[in-house]
Design a protein around this nucleic acid. Structure first.
Length: 283
DNA sequence: ATGTGTTCCTGTCCGC
DNA sequence: TGCGGACAGGAACACA
């Protein structure tokens, strides 16, 4: 699930228990995630204070007092659980150890952050903070869609001459960071663009229209995540798995949500992944 | 250079 | 209820 909005929601949920706090004890139960965890990770985290918790694309970055930065990627199924804290009217006791609880961070003060990832497509790494931007996983990633470097001129330039479907282009992290399968479908639906169109053949006006739509779709999802965060933390301390209603994603055969369209959502496969779109209003 | 297909791993859901 | 197959929100990599 985790695309940019979900990762941002998880980051915000972790802020109050992690930022400015010391990791009293880090425990690694399973070192073989997508990549092997770095040498001595538990020992290098234990005793470090989290100076800042930030996000780049779908990665969470924790800058530590040890001049190292912890990189966290949730992959497809990674989740973060918070326990040992009182949120609203509920106190979350530490849950019984669960299958796929790979890394546990016990914070000073009693809060616990548990990284659980069934499919182990998630990843963690540690690097000198000064070299974080140059990390091999972050190096080639395009601009943040909510940042200033992402604008109409940039996107027009990057899509120019590209023959790949616009769906694939928006999914390409080198072009723009943080979009995944769901939000690309949502963006193209809102833009009224057929996901099969060659990216480079779209008129510049249509490409330009994508920029504010991408921003709006992501901001709305972050907003929805923020409001559901409170509820979910009260429910079980788990971050980032809020239900969000989508207009086309996973709605095959349902009516198009666009006012007055009357079309039916179709599902096709593009480069091995499901695309949902309305053939009637997306052209 | 650019575009596509394969791959990692486990869980869930759907049809028979 | 069991079983096989399809599929899942990511992204690096190998290859045409």
């Amino acid at each position: 699930m985790p695309e940019l909005p979900e990762v941002e929601t998880v980051r915000r949920g972790l802020l109050p228990v992690m930022e400015g706090r010391v990791i009293a004890c880090a425990t690694v139960n399973r070192p073989d995630l997508r990549f092997a965890l770095p040498e001595g990770m538990a020992a290098r985290l234990t005793g470090a204070r989290v100076e800042r918790l930030r996000r780049r694309s779908k990665y969470i970055l924790a800058d530590l007092s040890t001049e190292e930065t912890l990189l966290i990627h949730l992959g497809m199924s990674g989740r973060m659980l918070i326990s040992g804290v009182t949120l609203g009217a509920f106190h979350h006791d530490h849950p019984a150890p669960a299958k796929h609880d790979h890394v546990i961070l016990d914070m000073e003060g009693g809060a616990r952050v548990t990284f659980n990832d069934a499919r182990r497509f998630g990843a963690m790494d540690l690097m000198p903070t000064a070299e974080a931007e140059a990390h091999w996983l972050l190096r080639g990633i395009g601009p943040e869609p909510l940042g200033n470097a992402f604008d109409e001129a940039y996107l027009v330039e990057r899509l120019k001459g590209r023959k790949m479907p616009v769906k694939a282009a928006l999914l390409d992290q080198k072009i723009v960071a943080g979009l995944g399968n769901i939000y690309v479908c949502e963006v193209l639906h809102r833009a009224g663009i057929d996901p099969r169109r060659a990216a480079g053949r779209l008129s510049s006006a249509r490409v330009r229209s994508l920029v504010p739509i991408i921003r709006a779709v992501l901001l709305e999802a972050i907003e929805a995540g923020g409001s559901s965060l409170r509820d979910y933390r009260q429910a079980d301390g788990e971050l980032g798995y809020f239900q969000h209603t989508f207009r086309v994603y996973d709605r095959e055969d349902e009516g198009c949500a666009r006012e007055g369209c009357g079309g039916t959502v179709a599902r096709i496969v593009q480069s091995g992944r499901s695309t949902f779109f309305c053939p009637r209003c997306q052209r």
